[in-house]
């Protein structure tokens, strides 16, 4: 059984806010607009949306991996 693991790298973030807009259940942005992963182990149903967020992140600051549980 594998689960999803979402990582947002605040050091790469350019605060475009797209991830939070696309997947508000997984990503948020702090006062400076920097990515905050609010749900690092989301339901697999979110995988496709998260993958899209990873692809379009202009700073390539997001990643999605599968965890062995």
């Amino acid at each position: 059984m594998t689960g999803l693991r979402v990582i947002g790298d605040g050091d790469k973030c350019i605060a475009s806010g797209q991830c939070g807009h696309l997947m508000p259940d997984v990503f948020d942005n702090d006062d400076d607009g920097i990515v905050v992963v609010t749900n690092p182990h989301p339901d697999p149903a979110f995988a496709e949306g998260i993958r899209h967020a990873v692809e379009i992140c202009p700073a390539q600051a997001l990643s999605l991996t599968s965890d062995e549980e």
Binding site: A15, H21, D32, E55, P58, A59
Partner: peptide, 11 residues
């Protein structure tokens, strides 16, 4: 409008 070409100078 978002996506990979979003302005990198925005901040």
């Amino acid at each position: 409008g978002g996506g990979p070409h979003f302005c990198l100078g925005a901040p």
